[in-house]
């Protein structure tokens, strides 16, 4: 019989934290769906969802109920094990990505000194899930979507990683809490002032990472019908969807921590500042999605390989020189 005192405190902390993160992901999914549809609606001079609840506020819940209640269909000829593991592989790492994020001064689940690398490593697993889902669906459009996703991930991951290096050089730490603490409360003390180019490249790469328009090539609706998740129904699709929004938040949270001072704000620093910044960036992502056409596949590769990678390498070089000299 193990008494309560025998359970190590870090384990309790992690379990509580995981529960909190799961709740946050769920709520965030609902909020993001509502936000996205409302913003899209108003951009297009429509009201967006309006029927369920006042101003359609309960629409995401109705959608979620519908998705959960729907029949899970496995297409004829699909590999059922790979097919159903793909959405889980897509969603599960998203939870881990939230663990090292410092939401507030004392609101960090695990403070490890390689937090940044951990987030990047787990968020990259999404590519594997998309590949599996596309491959195992026994659908040619899904296959094309998966192929696009892999080529795309190779292209954007490198500038994405490189764009974080100048920050690491400046702060000298991979711990996200330390990086936040390095920056001050006021906007001119944030690292975006010192590294504007890195911020822009990072943010653009986040679009590609989360498969958002204008880089939504793996799911390109008008070209590949729905890309890798053409065949998924019910919660299989729901998990991909939830994962996409979770990665959007992870991306925006990283951008906030690395470039926008994290939870720090001019008055009363705390998690509210963090959330304001994250959702502000999310709004920008939604805004961009509903404004631009989709780029072509090879254009994205051109952009990342021929423009972003050299630019960010020069940026790193200059940063390193400055850090060394001063």
């Amino acid at each position: 019989m193990i008494s309560l005192a025998q359970i190590p405190i870090p384990l309790i902390k992690i379990v509580v934290g995981l529960l909190g993160i799961l709740i946050f992901i769920g709520l965030n999914g609902l909020a993001c769906v509502y936000l996205e549809r409302k913003v899209a609606g108003h951009i297009q001079r429509r009201p967006g969802p309006f029927e369920v609840g006042p101003h359609g506020i309960l629409q995401p819940i109705a959608d979620a109920v519908k998705l959960v209640a729907k029949q899970m269909i496995t297409p004829k000829g699909a590999d059922p094990i790979l097919y159903w593991s793909a959405p889980i592989i897509s969603f599960a790492p998203a939870i881990v990505c939230f663990l090292p994020l410092p939401f507030g001064p004392s609101l960090q689940n695990i403070s490890i000194n390689i937090g940044l690398i951990m987030v990047l490593a787990f968020s990259s697993l999404n590519v594997l899930a998309l590949c599996l889902g596309g491959w195992s669906s026994q659908n040619k459009w899904s296959l094309l979507g998966a192929a696009r996703d892999i080529a795309q991930s190779v292209a954007y991951e490198i500038p994405l990683l490189l764009s974080m290096l100048p920050i690491v050089l400046l702060t000298g730490s991979l711990n996200l809490a330390d990086i936040t603490a390095y920056q001050g409360a006021w906007p001119w003390q944030w690292l975006v002032v010192k590294q504007p180019l890195a911020f822009i490249i990072f943010f653009v790469c986040i679009f590609a990472e989360t498969n958002r328009a204008p880089f939504d090539l793996p799911e390109a609706e008008s070209e590949l019908t729905a890309g890798f998740h053409t065949e998924y129904a019910g919660m299989g699709f729901g998990l991909f969807f939830l994962a996409e929004y979770s990665y959007m938040v992870v991306g925006c949270a990283l951008a906030t921590i690395l470039f926008l001072g994290g939870y720090q704000g001019p008055v009363a620093p705390g998690w509210w500042w963090f959330l304001i910044k994250v959702y502000g960036l999310l709004m920008v992502m939604i805004w961009v999605r509903w404004s631009f056409p989709r780029v072509r596949f090879d254009q994205l590769l051109n952009l990342t390989w021929k423009w972003f990678t050299p630019l960010i390498l020069i940026n790193i070089l200059i940063t390193a020189l400055v850090v060394k000299l001063i």
């Binding site: 297009q44 001079r45 204008p214 609706e221 631009f292 056409p293």
Partner: peptide
Amino acid sequence: YLLDLGAFTPIMYAFA
């Protein structure tokens, strides 16, 4: 056409 190219908003303006 813009919808084919992945831009969702123009068709709404055109329809208006």
